[in-house]
Simulated assay, not measured.
Amino acid sequence: MKMKQFESSYSFIKIVFTLSSFLIVTVLGIFVCLSEIQLQSLMTLGRSTFFSSFSYQNFKSTSRSLDEKSSSPQPDFRLLIGILTLPDQYPRRNLLRQVYGIQTPTKAQIDVKFVFCNLTKDDHLVLVALEIMRYNDIIILNCTENMNSGKTYTYFSSLPDILDSSDGEAYPYDYVMKADDDIYFRLDKLVESLRPMPREDMYYGFVIPCDEMNPYGHYMAGMGYIVSWDLVEWIRTSDFARNHTKGTEDKLLGEWFAAGHRAKNRYNTKPAMYDYPVNVEGDKCSHELTPDTIAIHRLKNQDKWIKTLRYFNVTSQLKPSKLYHIP
């Protein structure tokens, strides 16, 4: 009797335990399923929220960039300064990069490029290539290096093809300058003087001879003159210019324009453009440094550059720093 009662109690406990285990497992299973569903929902919601936010941010950024581009003011004019120099002139190029790089003229786009003929030395092939990779400010023309045997003609006549744009723009620049590597332009003053100038048939510079003030009937000194883009296009197509490339390059340019009845709008920059002052009796190309200077020529050595840059106080905007001490 006791044995049967024990066996019944044991069976009852076993059944209760089994049912309890089943209920626990069932409840846990339901909880896990619900948790996974909730977790996946949260993850899905999270992904949707993230990507929606990301796309919106990108859209806002793109829209803002397009708006800024469309609303950004166009420059009054665009000028290419081509400095005709030699591949060996590494120190001079580095100096010019600095003196033009710190200038920030307003309302004008000014690009400075150094212009060579074909490279012929092994060291140039490496060092000039490094410069191009670093600064992208060099134009190499298909010519033999020279001063008065066609380099200037090749410079002007090559630009329309070199600067040909595929975006449908009619022309890349309003003006093109040919400059020596021993002249210093103060870009703000240059922009100020060019702003009222005509955009077509324009010829600008220091008229030769030195005591002449009338720009018509003569030519502009090769130190640094500017022509409008239509004259660059004309030089490319002019048979007269193509067949007259030997001789003093700045004088030749004046002869091209005279033969083609071009450059009717001329501007003489004197006295704001001049040679560095030298103690030579009768020298009419130079005078003392003045605050309204546009350009100074014949900076042949570092001492002249330093005196010029100091006169115009070009380092006045140097910011104080713990990294250096310059009195």
Rank of each mutant, 00 (worst) to 15 (best):
residue 264 K to V: 09
residue 264 K to D: 07
residue 159 L to S: 12
residue 323 L to Y: 12
residue 111 D to H: 03
residue 13 I to P: 01
residue 167 D to H: 10
residue 278 V to N: 15
residue 63 S to T: 13
residue 230 D to K: 00
residue 46 G to R: 00
residue 255 E to Q: 12
residue 36 E to C: 10
residue 86 L to W: 13
residue 173 Y to S: 04
residue 50 F to D: 08
residue 22 F to H: 09
residue 261 H to V: 03
residue 127 L to G: 06
residue 224 G to K: 08
residue 33 C to P: 00
residue 88 D to M: 12
residue 163 L to H: 03
residue 53 S to D: 10
residue 157 S to E: 03
residue 225 Y to K: 15
residue 298 R to E: 08
residue 326 I to P: 02
residue 296 I to R: 03
residue 281 E to G: 14
residue 195 R to G: 00
residue 116 F to Y: 06
residue 21 S to I: 09
residue 131 E to M: 06
residue 288 E to D: 11
residue 322 K to C: 08
residue 151 K to Q: 15
residue 219 Y to A: 09
residue 162 I to R: 11
residue 270 K to H: 11
residue 193 S to G: 00
residue 247 G to I: 08
residue 84 L to T: 14
residue 191 V to E: 01
residue 232 V to Y: 02
residue 210 C to L: 07
residue 4 K to A: 13
residue 181 D to W: 02
residue 83 I to V: 15
residue 77 F to T: 13
residue 74 Q to S: 15
residue 215 P to T: 12
residue 29 G to H: 00
residue 87 P to L: 10
residue 153 Y to N: 14
residue 225 Y to P: 06
residue 197 M to S: 05
residue 111 D to S: 12
residue 149 S to H: 13
residue 70 S to D: 15
residue 223 M to A: 15
residue 241 A to R: 10
residue 87 P to K: 07
residue 282 G to E: 08
residue 116 F to V: 08
residue 287 H to A: 12
residue 120 T to C: 00
residue 223 M to Q: 11
residue 166 S to Y: 04
residue 190 L to G: 02
residue 79 L to N: 07
residue 76 D to R: 07
residue 317 Q to Y: 06
residue 79 L to C: 06
residue 239 D to V: 06
residue 65 S to K: 13
residue 248 T to S: 08
residue 207 V to N: 06
residue 78 R to D: 06
residue 135 Y to D: 14
residue 244 H to G: 04
residue 252 L to C: 10
residue 311 Y to C: 04
residue 195 R to K: 11
residue 215 P to E: 14
residue 253 L to K: 01
residue 90 Y to C: 07
residue 261 H to P: 00
residue 35 S to I: 02
residue 51 F to I: 12
residue 190 L to Y: 00
residue 104 T to C: 06
residue 117 C to L: 01
residue 269 T to P: 02
residue 19 L to I: 13
residue 12 F to P: 00
